[in-house]
Computed example of a mutant assay.
Amino acid sequence: MVTVNLGILHYVLDHVYGAFVHRTRLTTPFFSKGWGGSKLDLLENMIKQLFPEVIGQGMPPSLIQPLWRTVWETKTACLREGVFQTPCNEQLMSALPPESHTARVAFLAPKLLQPQKMACVVHLAGTGDHTFERRLRLGGPLLKENIATMVLESPFYGQRRPRLQRGAKLLCVSDLLLLGRATIEEARSLLYWLETEAGFGKTGVCGLSMGGVHAAMVGSLHPTPVATLPFLSPHSAVVAFCEGILKHGTAWEALREDAADTATLTLEQVRERMRSVLSLTDVTRFPVPKNPNAVIFVAATDDGYIPKHSVLELQKAWPGSEVRWVTGGHVSSFLLHNDAFRRAIIDSLNRLD
């Protein structure tokens, strides 16, 4: 009789999926146009300035006024879509592609909304999540728990994708930092709108993979306690692109050519530069959220993309936070453990005053 180790199968599934998506020539690799030139320098300086600023007084969210239209409604529920101009400052706006200047959100709530008695969670996009549908399916059943769902379409994704970009494969390293910084500004503004304009009693932010990194940053920077739920996410983009499976989908040769002005760089030197740039996304450098007890990480036991040590580093940096483990890999957990994600959302919101 042959005993099958399910953990190994989940881990292998991640690598098989990764090999198909990232090692074949079916799609272009990440960062095929290089580092992003002066745009990268601008973003590095802006993000370096972010850390002392948030550790001090914090950045107040921007006030936005989304324009809403009703997509459908039933006797009990209503789905609206809204648009608003991204609240990024002039420097960021000039760096963002024009297609990303207008943000889009979907808002799933009861038809007869009583926000003071309800909670709402903003769901952020993982790598490759271009539409609202998957996150609406995750949040839909939570209506029975008096929890509404707001889904943000990321810059560089969906209708906000630049014309020359194919799929989720960002053209430059600077695009990754731009995507993150703009997503954080927009998500914090949506939380502020939910709290001050819509009047929700409790709010939260969650995301899968890359969306989980952004959710952790938003929860850290928001001026009031929010439920913070990073799912299947690392503590830094360094883990994803320099240690995990995505390193096989990165255009290292193009990055080397773009970086070599006068001297020839080795691939190892290029990878070290990538580590240095992406260290700016290290969430352990961000302040501890206002209520760390309302931070729940959900991680997979056999994740080929995100190693366990990365999840535990962030938990250690945020005392009081909780890690919950689901059995599976990155891909299988993404598909099979929505109930665990929903349970974490409910529990995290219950830990808010």
Rank of each mutant, 00 (worst) to 15 (best):
K117H: 15
S38T: 10
P162N: 05
D175T: 11
R188D: 01
A340S: 15
N293L: 12
T196M: 09
L92A: 11
S321Y: 08
A299L: 10
P66L: 10
L43G: 00
L170H: 05
G126S: 03
V218R: 00
C78F: 04
P292A: 06
G167Y: 10
P287D: 05
Q114C: 12
L312C: 10
G167I: 10
V4E: 05
H15D: 03
G328P: 06
L152F: 07
R256D: 02
L176R: 13
C206T: 06
S209F: 10
V288W: 01
A237Q: 09
Y192E: 04
M93I: 08
K169R: 15
R134T: 06
A125E: 06
F107I: 11
Y11M: 03
P97A: 08
T24K: 05
L190F: 02
R342N: 08
L42Q: 07
G82H: 07
Y157K: 03
V226Y: 00
L336K: 14
R80W: 07
A109L: 13
P234C: 11
E90N: 13
N89T: 01
R273D: 11
E73S: 12
A237P: 00
L143P: 00
L138N: 00
T27D: 05
S32V: 09
V213Y: 00
K202Y: 06
N350I: 09
R104G: 01
C206W: 02
K169V: 09
L124A: 02
Y192M: 06
R161T: 07
C172V: 08
A263T: 11
D303A: 08
P141T: 11
W325F: 07
T183L: 00
V331N: 01
R134S: 14
Q116C: 15
T76Q: 11
K144H: 12
D339Y: 13
H235W: 12
D261R: 09
L314M: 11
E153M: 13
R273F: 03
R342Q: 15
H248W: 13
V105R: 08
Q269M: 12
T281S: 15
R23K: 13
G219Q: 02
I8Y: 03
V298E: 07
E81V: 14
A317C: 07
R273C: 11
D14W: 01
Y305V: 11
I8M: 08
L40W: 09
K247L: 11
K48P: 07
F107D: 04
Q85K: 10
D339N: 15
M59R: 07
H123C: 06
V71M: 12
Q114P: 06
H222G: 06
T86F: 00
L229E: 05
S189D: 02
S276Y: 14
L314Q: 12
L190V: 01
E90W: 01
T262L: 04
S233A: 15
F241P: 00
E81W: 09
S279C: 15
G329V: 06
E81H: 12
F156G: 05
A187D: 04
R161Q: 13
D302C: 09
L9H: 03
V21C: 08
V122K: 04
H337C: 10
F31L: 02
S321R: 08
F156S: 06
L138W: 12
R160L: 13
E99Y: 03
F334M: 10
K316P: 02
S154H: 14
H330I: 13
P110C: 05
L67N: 12
S32Y: 03
